[in-house]
Each structure stands twice: as structure tokens, then as C-alpha cells.
Amino acid sequence: MPALPANLVELLLHTAAWSALTIAAYWISKRLYRRWPRWWLSPLAVTPILIAAVMLSLHVSYQDYLHSTKWLLALLGPAIVAFAIPIYERRTLICRHWPVLLIGMLAGTATAIGSSWALATLVGFDGAMRLSLLPRSISTPFAVEVSGEIGGVPELTAIFVVITGIVGGLIGDILLSRIPCASALARGSLFGVGAHGAGTARAQQIGDTEGAVAGLVMVLVGLMNVVAAPLIVALLR
């Protein structure tokens, strides 16, 4: 990273400025969405556009921006730990229906890998590109691990995971208004299996039970994929 700020004061100023911008953009889009709850005004879509507009007009690269805001990303670690509490508090619901969740996670994971492979083949992707698309529906740390394992490019997979999060957060809402998903269990696992952390955040906004279920299946589906990676390799060879 050649554009590293030369001294500590500059680093702190950059961190403060870009973090403040990120938080402000997020806050503004949250207010917008509360006022006009349309899917295209979702904070998941509006916040990055606001930040990107400032970055592009100031000619700031992503590496510089990330350098100043990666502490926010690092907080995703403790956030996953924090999910232990809502999951523990809903243990009766989860223990009673664990077979249902397990079947949903298996079906969802198989669909994620199968449909990614089929659609990638359809548009003419092959080799490392196609493999990098396979683990895109699981949370970044797992996806990067699986991608490397099955012969994809972890860096590309990380990008696809992010796009999946944005897309999934948006279409999850649209799907839920059109299909019969009466139970919080179904709504939560739809988001957790389909769109990892971003989907879980969306589920958390719908309801606490939805959020807890989404958080649980997000973590479990990630683990499931890491364990299944050698199997996927064997199937593809």
C-alpha cells in the first residue's frame, strides 16, 4: 500500500473522517428508508452509493478507504460471537425444530452450489471463475476458505460474497412478499442461507426471532460448507 498516511495524526484523521462519512451515509439511508420503505431505497443499496459518490469525486481508492474503515469490518467478528445470546434465548424453538432447520440448510446449500455451477456454465464461465462463484452464498471467512480449497480465487469469491449480500438483502424482501413463509423459522433461514451476514442483518430488522434463526443458520451453513469442501472437490473432478 504506497498511499499509506505518513504519520499517526494523518492516519487518525483519515480514520475519523472516512468512518464518520460511512456512519453518516448509513444513518441518512436508514432515515430515508424509514420514511419511504421501498426496496430500492434499502440502506444496503443507498449507503454504498453515497460513499462511492464521495470516494469517486475525491479520487480516493478502495484500498485507502478500507484502510480507514476496516475497524468496522473487524467488528463483524464480535458480532458473530454476539449471536450466541439471541440463539441461546430461543433455544426451545431451535431445539424443537432443529430437523426442519437442518433439512432447509442442506437443501439451500445444495441449491446454492448447484445453481451457481449451472448458471455460470450457462453464461460461459469455466475454470477458476466458475469455482470462485460456488461458495458465494456463505459468510466471507468461510467462503474464502472454501474457495481456496476447491480451486477458486479467494479474492474474487470475496467480491461475489459482497454482491450476493447486496442482492440477497434486496430480493429477500421481494420474495417474502410473494411466497407463503408464515413462520419466523422460514423467514430467518431464507435470509441466513441465501445472503449470509447482510441477509441476517435484514432478518434482524424484520424480527428478533428471524434474526436469531438467520444468525444460527448463517454460522452453521458456513461450517457445513467448510466440512463439505473436499466432497465438492471430489464431485467436480
Partner: peptide
């Protein structure tokens, strides 16, 4: 939770 995810979305740039 969404806020924490935001810096990653700009990677597309």
C-alpha cells in the same frame, strides 16, 4: 449489523 458490512461493499469499485 449492516453498518459493519458497509466498508466491504465498496470493494466492487
Amino acid at each position: 449489523l449492516l453498518l459493519l458490512f458497509m466498508p466491504a461493499t465498496l470493494a466492487v469499485l
